[in-house]
Design a protein around this nucleic acid. Structure first.
Lengths: 191, 191
DNA sequence: TTGCTAACCGGAACAGCGTTCCGTATCGTT
DNA sequence: AACGATACGGAACGCTGTTCCGGTTAGCAA
């Protein structure tokens, strides 16, 4: 569990609450309307004034980056729980689907990433830092149980699933089926 | 010479003039500040009211697309003149440099292309339609004179030069030298 | 418990954007 | 020369991100 904001001096309780509310409200709004959604839409849903938002996230891009990190954390943190509660390959499948949902809420973010705003500079490396180890563990467990092949690069798999998810807006279980197909591919080379 | 606007009903003289002024003003502003530059900056430079702009380009994206087509035309139309006035390989080099300038004025356009605005849908194909034949002719002439190899795909070369140009903002003769290097590569396989 | 102050909150206000509207001026024709 | 269609300029509109500040509240000290 990594926290979204470092916040050196201890925050007051109401501040902490505002930040959390804003983060979840922003995540919802971004998922619905993309990261270009108006700020007021976020503050309205959070039931918070604009001043409150800008106190904690001086720039719009700071909020976007924070939400991103927050969701990366949430996604990565799911891995251990799934690993504990399911058979290795099933845990892997469920986590990849979870990752799928994560990507699906990122409409417009790739454009933002290439905008040159320095607030986004650390995002790609954070993405790797948190998600690759999570996937590595799941892959490792499944490989150890002898159910999947061992020559898969976690990074490649993340990319593949992400690309699978991006084009389709939202449809029937298409992405789910495609992830299943990928998993079968992994099984194919099992020892 | 392909015209920017089809304009079925004959345009009044002042309208034609406004469109031309706007197109060149927009091209200059886009080159200086990128395609995200404020509309008012364009109308100011053109010495024209906002209403005039929107009469001819109902959406901001229509203006961008028109400027793009206009400049693609200008670039493509340079090829025959260069071919007539220079030795084949030199004509090729000069045109590639010209293309380099074209790309350099496209800051922010790639983001716009991926924005999903239908006004941009026809742009990539127009790009191919006009520039590939122009380059094909120059390559053909140079190949016929036996000075360069014959296995080069015009599309590949355009992409390569474009990629060469994009990263660097504007510097010493770096892109020029790189284009020269590419040309030497072409010469290398000459029969 | 009470009182005080630094931290925090809400929302009105500001500047700048794309776009629309409309009274006025101009073109091209009769 | 006069008239209608067409085009022009720029003020005005609605929306945006962001700033500002008077009022509120949390958390500590007495």
């Amino acid at each position: 569990m990594t926290d979204a904001e470092p916040s050196r001096p201890r925050l007051r309780a109401d501040a902490r609450r505002s930040i959390d509310t804003l983060l979840t409200a922003a995540a919802e709004v971004f998922a619905e309307s993309g990261v270009d959604a108006p700020v007021r839409q976020i503050t309205a849903r959070a039931g918070v004034g604009a001043g409150t938002l800008y106190r904690h996230f001086p720039q719009r891009s700071d909020l976007i980056a924070a939400v991103f990190r927050h969701e990366v954390d949430a996604c990565a943190d799911t891995a251990p729980a799934l690993a504990a509660g399911h058979a290795p390959v099933e845990a892997l499948r469920l986590w990849l689907l979870r990752f799928t949902h994560f990507i699906a809420t990122k409409r417009g973010l790739s454009a933002a990433l290439h905008s040159g705003d320095p607030a986004y500079d650390s995002l790609p490396s954070y993405f790797q830092l948190r998600l690759v180890p999570a996937l590595e563990d799941l892959l490792g467990a499944a490989a150890e149980s002898g159910e999947i092949r061992t020559d898969t690069d976690p990074n490649d798999l993340l990319r593949a699933v992400a690309n699978l998810t991006l084009p389709a807006q939202d449809d029937d279980g298409h992405t789910g089926r495609m992830v299943g197909l990928l998993l079968d591919g992994l099984r194919y080379g099992a020892p």
